[in-house]
Amino acid sequence: MKKKSFLSRVADAPYLLWMILFIVAPMLFVIYFAFTDRNGGFTFENITSLSSYSGTFVMSLSFSLIATVICLLIGYPLAYCMAKASKKARNILLVLLMLPMWISLLIRTYSLMALLDNGGLVSSLLVKMGLPKLTFIGTEGAVILGMIYDFLPYMVLPIYTSLVKLDVRYAEAAQDLGCNGPKTLFRVILPLTMPGVVSGVTMVFVPSISTFYISQKLGGGSFDLIGDTIERQFQNAVTYHTGAAISLVMMILILLSLFVMNRFADKEEIIV
């Protein structure tokens, strides 16, 4: 017994080391920088000075909220159709959904940009058809579309999984008790797949609120999101402290929202 636990401890060691090196240590650095000034003295100033970024916070929050809601509105029906499809169709749809996830987000964003660019493919097609050319890049819509395009699969997958795992007997029981299709969906299927919805929302909301390249590439530089701000601060040694403070606040905000969402899911007390 003892030998085995020693062995397993040895086996755990690399992961532990990894976590300390790449998760705990950077966090400590973030906290350290957030509460120190240029000379290394303790200060709250970095945090208090953040009020000047409140506009950026609000914009990031609203962009990512809109993207998350639209992802949910597209993602749930999509996941539902996939779960209802025949086994063969289901597997094809699943591969189609996962395929983009195997390509770097950066490359996907670039390709979307090439497609939608003011002189890009879609635009020139429109012009050929005698329609006005597209001026989409540089709008709020483009940034939000980028978020949706990049993160939609992360909404669909967890919802799809919870739908597939859901026992058909619950839906049958609902029909037995008088529910037609829509009533079955809203009274039974939706509440019982809430855990999938919560993880989908989390997996879209978190990367959306902290993204920087989407806004840079598709926003044409006109939208400065929180991610962009943090990135800029860290490109200059002098502003590390502000960058760390913003990151810390972001982290706390995200943790808080995760906590709230998980409480929401817990309340349902779902056993699948």
Binding site: E172, E268, I271
Partner: peptide, 11 residues
């Protein structure tokens, strides 16, 4: 129907 394993709604 009373289903084979009841199928009570867990939520």
């Amino acid at each position: 129907t009373v289903f084979q394993r009841y199928a009570l709604f867990p939520h």
